[in-house]
């Protein structure tokens, strides 16, 4: 279980560091792959671009997706990976600063599995990261096709 990969899609280096720190503080020791924009995330998932040749059979256990990204934004990433057979059922957690109802609604309608608002208070952020890891990496039973593909 602990070898399962987390794909963190985040462009803000501070947030990357803080997220990694929060995950670590929350005792999530899984490998975290960081994609700094939407294109990179899709390249990783579909084995294209800089990730050409990557074994796409190896899918992450969960994707932590920021919405506001350069180039291709988070919603578009979600839409594309939901329309691909291989990543159709991949658990995606939107992790964002936005509390806008519109974003929440759009995220869910595009097939997000969860929507988490990044709190300013770092203590709360650590708590959120811990619960997130516990839930998606330990409690949650991954979808069958993800397992098959693995």
């Amino acid at each position: 279980m602990s070898s399962q990969i987390i794909l963190l899609v985040e462009d803000n280096p501070d947030d990357i560091d803080l997220t990694l720190r929060a995950l670590k503080k929350g005792n999530i020791t899984n490998e975290v792959v960081v994609a700094r924009d939407g294109t990179e995330a899709l390249d990783y998932l579909f084995g294209t671009g800089q990730y050409a040749g990557r074994d796409t059979g190896e899918v992450p256990a969960v994707v932590l997706l920021d919405l506001k990204l350069p180039k291709i934004d988070g919603m578009e990433v979600l839409r594309r990976l939901r329309s691909d057979q291989n990543t159709r059922l991949l658990p995606v957690v939107i992790l964002t600063s936005s509390k806008e109802e519109d974003d929440v609604a759009r995220g869910y309608s595009l097939g997000a599995n969860s929507y988490i608002h990044k709190p300013v208070d770092f203590d709360q952020f650590v708590e959120a990261a811990r619960q997130l890891g516990l839930y998606w990496l330990v409690l949650n039973e991954p979808p069958p096709c993800t397992r098959e593909a693995r």
Binding site: D14, L18, K68, T96, S97, S98, P119, V120, D121, F122
Partner: peptide, 22 residues
């Protein structure tokens, strides 16, 4: 503007708080 306030203005605050805590 609201959107960017909501998203972008909060992110630095998170850094301020997060790294202060660090």
């Amino acid at each position: 503007f609201s959107y960017s306030v909501s998203h972008d203005l909060r992110a630095p605050l998170r850094s301020v708080d997060g790294f202060s805590q660090a």
